[in-house]
Structure formats: C-alpha cells, structure tokens
Design a protein around this nucleic acid. Structure first.
Length: 206
DNA sequence: CGCCTTTGACCGGCGC
DNA sequence: GCGCCGGTCAAAGGCG
C-alpha cells in the first residue's frame, strides 16, 4: 500500500479549481463553477480550502489552475453546485455504506440525494506516487479504466469509522507525472485520529 | 488473524 | 429501448 506515511517528499502542487473567491472555508470544498478566472498563485498558508497534507514545503507556491476542472469534471461541477445548496441541510443523517444496494422502495430518491450530497474538490499534483500523504488513512475499494485516459482511476474510502469521505486518483494521460486527486465529502475527524504515530502536524481542515 | 489490494460483476445514469 | 460508461460491491488472495 503506497498510501501510508512515507518520508516527506516534495510535491509540486497544482490545485485546480475555478473560483477561489467563492469557496466556503467552512465546508472545505471547492465550489465548481463554469466561469472562472485565470490561474493564480497562492501559498499553502493562505489557501482557504483544506489542502491535503502532502509534504509540500510550507511556503512553496501552489498553482491553482482553473482549466482542469472544466474539462473532465463538468458533470461533477453540476453536482457540486447542487451539493452546496442541499447537501448540508438535507443529508445530515445518512445511510452508511450500504445505501447503494439497499432494497428500499425509494432507492432512486436516496441515490439522487446522495449524488447531490457530497462536497467535492479536486486538484492536480505532480508526483511520482499516486496516493498523496494527506494525513488520512485510505482503503482502496475499486479501480477502473476510464475512457480517454491511459491510466486507471483508483477509488479510495477513508478507513475511519463513520467517515465516508472518498477520493479518486488518476494520472493524466497527457502527462503521466501529473496526478488528479478528487476528494468527495468531509472528514468527521482529524488526521490525527487515523494515525496515532503520525509525525505530521495535525490539523483539521474542516 | 486482521487488514489491505485486486478484480470481475453488477447497477444506475445518460446519451443516442 | 439499448448500449456505453462510471462508480461500487464483494469475494479472493496477499501481506505483515
């Protein structure tokens, strides 16, 4: 498993989202919108959203590039906009991991709700490893070859109990050094909860 | 032994 | 309605 706590590595982080001004720091995700400004630079200190705890030198610049999301994530953008509005209020109590195969009669309704529920953001890193060390512990639950991508997409779920945050990891087909990581949901715990012996600084971004 | 990854199957959404 | 596609499940096997 490569998702463990390896020694600190240097990553070039290119965080991709469209419109940082509209981001809600309390929700900890990136609202996705169709129109967004040009790329800009911030430091990880000033980043308003929960950057994963990757081992970037703390003052190193992070490139936010807005064009990434607008291509393969159009579908997600729509979902995420919805999630901002209804996800927080309507979907606080949830069905756990077995929602999908539940035999309830309103399965479709549940599914719709779920689709709209989770806040989501993605970013792009240049890294040799697929799974960035963000301080949380992840369990892989699937891998899929997706269309228009040379590399398979991996699906991870947070191993913490009652935390259903998921992330997808895939490499850019155009540049296999670039890793696209998409987080979905909010952690209900701090990174420390997962790693008793973590040598990382612990912060709860949410 | 427990936790993890792998991998094929399954399911629903969506476009045609 | 059908087929494609993405996302998830779960059994099986591996590893520490």
């Amino acid at each position: 498993m490569e998702g463990g706590r390896g020694p600190p590595r240097g990553y070039e982080l290119e965080v991709s989202f469209p419109n940082p001004q509209t981001m809600h720091h309390d929700m900890g995700f990136v609202p996705l919108e169709e129109n967004h400004g040009p790329s800009f630079m911030v430091t990880s200190q000033s980043s308003p959203f929960p950057l994963p705890q990757v081992s970037v030198p703390f003052n190193s610049p992070i490139t936010f590039s807005g064009d990434l999301i607008s291509k393969p994530w159009n579908h997600d953008q729509m979902e995420n906009l919805e999630a901002r509005q209804v996800g927080e209020q309507n979907c606080t109590s949830d069905v756990g991991n077995s929602w999908w195969r539940s035999s309830s009669s309103d399965k479709s309704k549940v599914k719709v709700r779920r689709k709209l529920r989770e806040p989501r953001f993605c970013f792009q890193t240049r890294s040799e490893v697929d799974v960035l060390d963000d301080g949380y512990k992840w369990r892989k639950y699937g891998q899929k070859v997706v269309k228009n991508s040379l590399h398979p997409r991996s699906y991870y779920r947070c191993t913490h109990t009652n935390c259903r945050v998921k992330k997808r990891v895939e490499r850019l087909s155009e540049d296999c050094r670039m890793v696209i990581t998409t987080y979905e949901g909010r952690h209900t715990h701090s990174p420390c909860d997962d790693s008793q012996s973590s040598e990382h600084e612990c912060f709860n971004s949410f």
